[in-house]
Simulated scan of single mutants.
Amino acid sequence: MELRHAFAKALRKARKANGLTQEDFADVSSRTYLSTLERGQKSPTLDKVHVLAQTIGIHVLSLMTLTYLCSKKESNIDLIFEKIRTEIDGLNQDKG
């Protein structure tokens, strides 16, 4: 599944799971724009993803992790987090 469509599915799933309507996002986005995101017609900016996650009441990485799970590119959340932890640890090591 294309990531844009996986994000659409994840956004809709997270919004509905938290009992929110598209109208609940009126302060951060128009209903029309949110609808185009949820149909996979547009890709949001990083700033917009952050604001959408805040509005839903979840961490932006939760929304992105759900996106990758919906994309079927990743199927095991524990493996995703293990990989991220290893990569971040490697990036944070002082190499100099």
Rank of each mutant, 00 (worst) to 15 (best):
G40F: 14
K48L: 12
L63W: 03
L34H: 09
D94H: 09
T55L: 07
L34F: 10
D78M: 08
Q54F: 04
S62L: 01
L66M: 15
I58D: 10
G96V: 08
I80S: 00
T36H: 15
V60Y: 09
E82H: 01
I77V: 15
K9T: 14
K13C: 05
K42W: 01
Q22W: 07
Q41I: 14
A17N: 11
A6I: 08
S29L: 15
I58Y: 07
D47R: 14
E38S: 08
I80R: 01
L11P: 06
L34I: 13
K42T: 10
D24E: 06
T45G: 13
V49G: 14
Q54E: 13
A26W: 06
T65F: 00
R39F: 04
K95Y: 09
A26R: 15
T45K: 13
G57W: 02
G57D: 03
K95C: 04
K73V: 11
I77P: 07
N18S: 14
G57F: 04
E23F: 08
K83M: 07
E82I: 00
A17K: 06
E74D: 02
I88T: 15
L79P: 00
E2Y: 06
G96S: 12
L20M: 10
D27H: 11
V60F: 02
I77L: 12
E2C: 02
T67S: 12
H59L: 03
Q93S: 08
A14Y: 10
R15I: 01
K95S: 12
F81H: 10
K72Q: 15
Q41L: 13
T67A: 10
F81D: 11
A26G: 07
E82A: 06
D27N: 12
T65A: 12
K73C: 01
V51N: 09
K16Y: 04
L11G: 14
L79Q: 12
D94E: 13
L69R: 06
L69V: 07
L91D: 03
Y33F: 03
A17S: 05
A26Y: 06
D94C: 05
F25D: 04
L79F: 05
K72A: 13
R31I: 09
L69H: 06
T65H: 07
A17I: 02
K95R: 15
K83F: 05
S30V: 01
L52T: 03
A6M: 11
M1N: 08
L79E: 11
A53D: 10
D27M: 10
L61P: 02
V60D: 07
E23L: 15
S75Y: 06
K48G: 04
G40K: 12
R31E: 13
H5I: 13
D94T: 07
T55H: 13
I56L: 14
L52P: 00
D47C: 03
K42N: 11
Y33Q: 08
S35C: 08
N92Q: 15
L3P: 00
Q22P: 04
A26H: 09
P44L: 07
S43Y: 01
A53W: 05
S35K: 03
E87P: 00
K72M: 07
E23V: 14
L20C: 02
L61Q: 11
E23W: 09
A6D: 05
V60P: 10
T32V: 12
S29M: 15
S29W: 02
G90W: 05
V49K: 12
F7P: 00
A17Q: 08
A14L: 03
D78C: 01
T45C: 02
S29A: 15
Q22K: 13
Q22F: 05
G19Y: 02
L37Y: 04
K16W: 03
I77K: 13
A53M: 09
T65D: 06
